[in-house]
Structures are given as C-alpha cells and as structure tokens.
Design a protein around this nucleic acid. Structure first.
Length: 180
DNA sequence: AGCGCTACAGTGTTACGTTAAAGGTCTC
DNA sequence: GAGACCTTTAACGTAACACTGTAGCGCT
C-alpha cells in the first residue's frame, strides 16, 4: 500500500505571457512574481495548497498535490482562471500530464541496509550512511527510484503513474523477503 | 612561416527555485 | 529540543559559469 505525498504535473498554454500582468489580472488569492529571485510566476489557490509555476512561454508546472485528483482539480481551476481573462483563449489540448509522483510505503520490519545493498546488487544501489541515512535503489525493471530506510519506511519517486509505483513497490517487497 | 600566448565568441553544462517524504547529523 | 541540511525525482527558463574554437598579435 503506497501513499502519495507529492504529485507533479506540467502543461502548455501555447501562449506568450506577460507574467507581471498575468499575476495582477488573475483572480487568485496568492500570486508572486519576483523576476530578480526567480523568472517564474507562482500561483496558489490556497495558502498551503499546490503551487503552480507559470513561465513566459506559456508552460506551467504544478507541484505539491497530495493526490492525482487534487493535481487535476488544481489544473482545471487554473485553466478556468486563465480562461476568464480578457483576450486569452485556452487551447483544447494543454498537454497536461503527470510527470512525477512521490509516495511513501512501509515494508513492515526493520532492515539491515548493508545486507540489503548486497542483496539488491551493489551496481544498482547507493548507500553512504555518513552522507545520507537512506539507501538509494534504482531498479532496472521499473522506471522509479527508491529511498529505503532502516526503519522499513520507503520513499518512491520518479513514477508517472500510481500503478508504476505500486508494481515497483510490490516487486521490492518480494525481493526484500527473498534477501532477508 | 611557424609557434605560442592572449582575448574573445560561441557552445555546453550546471545551479537555481518549488514540492514532498524518509532519518541521521549538525548547529544554535 | 528545534530547525536546517543532506538525498531522490520531475517539470520549466534564465543566469552564471566552464570549456572549446578561432582570431590576432608578437617573437623566433
């Protein structure tokens, strides 16, 4: 069982945007544009909600959603707000898609990371406890990366679909059971 | 003419900033 | 004890670098 903690998606409005003007015109409670600090316009619908970063090219990124539903709802809200603006028409296909899902899971037992590193294959593993306490595992059969901790907790990142993360984690569990 | 050095242009790479989780280490 | 930092991942555009190639100059 995996638990999504962060979903990242991106899309394209296919419009050249004046970010300063857009930030002023958008009917959104939180916007921030400080080109001296960063060249993207930050947009939020809630103080602690997902963050939308909009670029001059019309491309945008949404980060910080704790579910795919929240990610898609935020995208819809954003597009509706843009569509309300005078002189801007939103294309039918913004190409919005999920780019990265970060999730957590639990193996359910304490792990010996040194033994696990050998069992998983040293060429697929990075483990430098003096630098970072988690073991980084990049399986060849799944397009994801695992951060595995001695407590048995696991962070799964790089997935573009929940099925990819779930399948990868189930595979990891069975590998760990064979090793330990 | 040929070589070596310097200066500049152009290209390529990297960091930035954002988000989230995990747990160890360090500073205050 | 609290908080920051370390690591990973993805997207994005810009700035700051590093690096390479070329041109020009001076010396032998």
């Amino acid at each position: 069982m995996i638990n999504i903690v962060n979903a990242v998606g991106s899309g394209n409005l296919h419009l050249e945007l004046d970010l300063e003007q857009l930030g002023a015109d958008l009917n959104v409670p939180y916007t921030e544009y400080d080109p001296e600090n960063y060249h993207g316009l930050y947009v939020r619908f809630e103080e602690d909600g997902p963050l939308i970063t909009v670029y001059r090219s019309g491309k945008y990124i949404i980060v910080g959603s704790s579910s795919l539903n929240e990610l898609n709802e935020t995208n819809d809200l954003f597009l509706n707000c843009i569509a309300e603006l005078e002189g801007i028409s939103i294309p039918d296909n913004t190409g919005f898609s999920i780019r990265n899902i970060v999730s957590t899971a639990e193996i359910g037992k304490e792990l010996n990371l040194n033994a696990l590193a050998i069992g998983l294959g040293l060429e697929l593993v990075e483990f430098e406890p003096e630098q970072f306490p988690g073991l980084v595992y990049r399986p060849t059969d799944h397009p994801i990366v695992f951060l595995i901790f001695s407590s048995g907790k696991v962070v799964i990142t790089g997935a573009t679909d929940t099925d990819i993360a779930t399948d990868g984690f189930e595979d990891l569990q069975s590998k760990i059971n064979n090793i330990t």
